[in-house]
Amino acid sequence: MSERQNVLEIRDVAVHFGGRGGLLGKAGPVIKAVNGVDLDIARGETVALVGESGCGKSTLSNTIVGLQAPISGSVRISGDEVVGANRRQLNDIRRKVQMIFQDPALSLDPRSTVGATIGEPLIARGVAKGKALRERVATLLQQVGLRPEHADRYPHQFSGGQRQRVVIARALALEPDLLICDEPVSALDVSVRAQILNLLVALQKRTGVSYLFVSHDLGVVRHICDRVVVMYLGRFVEMADRDTFFANPKHPYTKALMSAVPEADPEVQRAKQRFILSGELPSPSNIPSGCAFHTRCPLATEICSRERPELTPRADGARVACHHA
C-alpha cells in the first residue's frame, strides 16, 4: 500500500433526485445529478472541482458531508463510512468534515454574535465551555485574521470578506480533516478574494487540513489547488495534477472551459485560441446517450453517441473520459 493517507475516499457514488412518485403520485423524471464518481483526497491536499452550473458539484459536496444520501456507493471520511451512518455516527463524522458556502451572509445567523456562532459547534459537542471556550474562539478569530474583541459583534457589523472569515473560523472550530469549500470566494470582490485565498493557503500550511474546492474560476483554481477534477452532467470527465492539467488539458470540454475563462491580460486573452462551445448544458433529467458531451463536442463521431467513454489513465498521469482525446 502507498504512504498516501486519504482523508476522503469516494467509490462509485450516484445521487439521483425524483422519480419515485413525484407530485400527485405521478413519477417525475429522474434527475441523475451525480453518477459513477470515484475520488480520493490526501491529507493536506487541495482538489478543485470545476464544471458548469448544474453539473452536480453541490450535490456531490452535500453527499460528502452526509446532507444528501446517494442511491449507491461509498463515502469514507478518514476511514469512517458516511453512507448509511446513523445520526450519532454522522455527528462524529461531521467533526472531521466541514463545509463553507458561497454567500457568507446566508450561513451566519444575524441574531447571534460572531463569538456565539463560532463557539456553537464547540458547545454542541461538549468540546469546550466557559473560559476555555472564550479562549478557543479568540484563537480562531486570530487564525482567520480577525481580533478577539470581534467576538461580541454581529454579522451586519462586518464586511463581506470579514463575514467569510467568520464562516471559516466556525468551520475550523472542530479541527476538521477536510473542508469542503463550495465557491467560497465567488461572491467577494477581487481584492477581498485574494485575502481569503491567502488565508486558506496559510491555514492549510499550519493545520494540514485538506480542501475540496468547488469553483468555476480557473484562475483561482490554478492558484490554490494540487489537483483538478472536471465534472460534466454528473460525471468526472478529466482529473489531473495541477501542472499537467493546465499545461496539457485533454478532454474537449476541459479545453472549452479553459478557452472560455478570460485571462486578466489583454495581450494573452486576445491572442488566445478560441474554442467557443455552442449550445447549453443538457438537462440532467435527460442525459444524452454515450458520451454526455457529444451534443456540444466539436470532435464527436458516431461512437460518441453510442458508447460512454470510461475515465482512462494517460501517460502523464491524467485520467480522461473521451474516445478521441
Binding site: S191, H223, A264, D265
Partner: peptide
C-alpha cells in the same frame, strides 16, 4: 495596480501569497 496584482495570474507560483489591499 493592486487590483491587478490581486488577481491570480498564469505565471504565479501555486499557493504563493497574492497581493491584497488592506482594509475596506
Amino acid at each position: 495596480a493592486l487590483l491587478l496584482a490581486s488577481v491570480p495570474k498564469l505565471d504565479d507560483a501555486p499557493k504563493a501569497d497574492l497581493a491584497t489591499i488592506e482594509g475596506t
